[in-house]
């Protein structure tokens, strides 16, 4: 009996041992497979994003220029950041970033209105979706070039029209210090309405119909229904659009680079444009990296705000 038991135990032990080696082998295979699948993405992210962000942080504390050699890197502490607080072009650009944000609520309001009308009140819904979506798909460079001509101070169709209807001294739009940024915002609104509208339509889709039926039985008018049902129930959509809109507003480069090049007199410059100018025209890599840090921190702050805010302000 005893030897048999031992033999049996031995057999079982060796079986479990081979089982555990095969399990370990399997797990190893699984791990290798996993790394192979995520490998390209990891390498790409590390090389194209992670290392550059670390490099950006480091360079922002130097007065380096990339046309100099690596050995000429000199750390200057917080000098670049101190410089930014004295730099009028930067301060204007920074301020303009915040003025640009005014376009977001306007875009959202128009988009919500359009979304409600298209969803409830018209035929050819798909056609309207396509129409309002077209500017969003269009190349920003092409759009900018078209608007440059449309906004032409003396000959452009917009001002010709304004003069014909009796406005004698229409604004010079892109050529005018106080109108250049509003003109950019106007175009921004025009291009972003489609995106906002589509997202709002998806949000409206989720509101149960019986809420409106119940409300209208109780005698609530359209405005009351809008105030008390639609608006609160799309608040999560609104919040999402607000956050993505703000993040996007920090990244608007193409439009300004083509339309105004930040001018006239920096009146339409924003941080990303100034960053580009400092980095690739003035070749001040260190200083540009300091601007990049400010930009990054702004976007980071919005992301944190999004995490906190999602809980607090989205009500339903």
């Amino acid at each position: 009996m005893e030897p048999a038991i031992t033999a049996n135990n031995k057999a079982r032990a060796s079986a479990s041992a081979s089982k555990s080696t095969s399990a370990r082998k399997k797990r190893l295979q699984e791990t290798i497979a996993g790394w192979i699948f995520v490998g390209p993405m990891l390498i790409g992210t590390a090389l194209m994003t992670l290392i550059p962000i670390l490099a950006s942080v480091l360079i922002s504390f130097t007065d380096w220029s990339f046309i100099k050699g690596i050995d000429e890197i000199r750390f200057v502490g917080l000098d670049n950041f101190a410089g930014l607080t004295q730099d009028e072009t930067f301060i204007t650009s920074f301020k303009n970033n915040f003025i640009l944000m005014l376009a977001i609520p306007i875009t959202m309001a128009i988009s919500l209105l359009l979304a409600i009308i298209i969803k409830n009140g018209v035929w050819f819904k798909d056609l309207f979706k396509i129409i309002y979506f077209m500017p969003y798909i269009s190349s920003v460079v092409g759009v900018a070039v078209v608007f440059q001509v449309l906004f032409h101070p003396s000959l452009g169709p917009i001002n010709q029209f304004l003069m014909k209807i009796g406005i004698e001294d229409p604004p010079k739009w892109l050529a005018d210090i106080s109108y250049s940024l509003p003109s950019v915002m106007l175009i921004l609104i025009w291009t972003q309405i489609g995106f906002n509208m589509i997202i709002y339509m998806a949000g409206l889709q989720n509101i149960p119909k019986d809420l409106y039926e119940a409300a209208s039985i109780d005698g609530a008018g359209s405005w009351q229904q809008f105030r008390n049902i639609t608006l609160p129930l799309v608040s999560s959509t609104s919040f999402f659009l607000l956050v993505t809109g703000v993040v996007y507003s920090f990244k608007v480069f193409d439009l300004i680079a083509v339309l105004t090049e930040g001018g006239p007199a920096n009146s339409s410059s924003v941080m990303v444009y100034y960053l580009y100018d400092v980095a690739f025209t003035n070749l001040r890599t260190g200083y540009a990296s300091a601007i990049a840090m400010v930009l990054f921190l702004c976007v980071l702050a919005i992301t944190v705000f999004q995490w906190v805010g999602q809980r607090k302000w989205v009500n339903y």
């Binding site: 194209m48 550059p52 962000i53 920090f250 580009y276 930009l295 990054f296 976007v299 980071l300 992301t303």
Partner: peptide
Amino acid sequence: FRGRDALFLIVLATFMVPQQSIIVPQFIL
């Protein structure tokens, strides 16, 4: 595989880096 979710979080975190803030190092690279 081990560490999978941590890796994903790292990748996901890079989403909030605006490309413009790393464009200079990318250029140098």
